[in-house]
């Protein structure tokens, strides 16, 4: 029984025999920031599920006040099935794109989390999305948290180093906190090739050299995990949860929370 759990855990946290992102992130609070559409929500869901698979007590804060669809809350059924506590506006405001921060967010960020408590915060994109975060920063102890900047260099306005640095600094200003780590997440969804993954990882390393902020891990679609060779960067193997409605698994069961 124990070993079966261990094997399952390793599959999630040690893709391809490499260190997994959940192993290297030791701070109880992980905040995801980045360009609009850089992949924060999908990474937040995968991290939350990864920590939950390790037996952690995970809260996932959907702080996306920017985009109206494809937010963390769209994966409500999947994350709640794993015992993850999703913090999101309730009632019909669940579906709104209003700048709502429920009181529970501050509560979960300030209270003692215990040895296995984890909080994942998914901020909205750009400095606009990070502004909501800035209003909470006084409550977030820098010693207990990491703020990760997600980079997908195939996204508009994120193609060159100058744009990445400018956005990183704008987000830091809006969030009132320094970024502590980078996440390489360059992909083209279904059209991702190993070259795209490697190109994105190289761009993240350049950004790390420019800013002095380390690359904490590389997020890679599950089927592309083998693409990164010659580096021991930790990997987050990405399973997609924020799917369009034609995805084969999108049955009536999922419709309601699919953000669609």
């Amino acid at each position: 029984m124990q070993s079966a759990v261990r094997v399952q855990m390793d599959a999630m946290t040690k893709p391809n025999g490499r260190a997994g992102a959940c192993e290297v992130l030791t701070a109880p609070i992980v905040i995801l920031v980045g360009h609009f559409g850089s992949g924060k929500s999908e990474i937040a869901i995968n991290l939350a599920l990864g920590f939950a698979a390790r037996g952690d007590d995970v809260s996932l804060v959907d702080l996306d006040v920017v985009k109206p669809y494809f937010r963390c809350r769209a994966a409500r059924e999947e994350v709640e099935a794993k015992g993850i506590h999703l913090i999101v506006p309730d009632g019909d405001r669940f579906y709104a794109d209003l700048p709502i921060i429920v009181p529970e967010v501050k509560g979960v960020l300030t209270r003692s989390l215990g040895a296995h408590g984890r909080v994942i915060v998914d901020a909205g994109g750009d400095d606009t999305g990070a502004r909501a975060l800035g209003s909470l920063m006084d409550a977030i102890d820098p010693e207990r948290s990491e703020m990760l900047f997600v980079v997908n260099t195939r996204r508009p306005f994120a193609e060159d180093q100058a744009a990445l640095v400018a956005m990183l600094r704008d987000i830091e200003t809006a969030a009132r906190r320094r970024v502590t780590g980078l996440v390489a997440n360059t992909h083209l969804i279904e059209e991702t090739t190993p070259e795209v993954v490697r190109e994105g990882f190289a761009a993240a390393l350049t950004l790390a050299a420019t800013t002095g902020i380390p690359v904490r891990f590389c997020a890679v679609l599950k089927r592309m995990v083998g693409a990164l060779t010659g580096t021991d960067v930790p990997i987050l193997s990405i399973e997609r949860y924020l799917l369009p409605p034609e995805a084969p698994g999108m049955t009536g069961r999922r419709r309601r929370f699919a953000g669609v």
Binding site: P245, P248, T251, G252, R254, R255, A258, V260
Partner: peptide, 9 residues
Amino acid sequence: GGMVMGPDD
């Protein structure tokens, strides 16, 4: 209303 059919439907 924003409800979307699934392929199964």
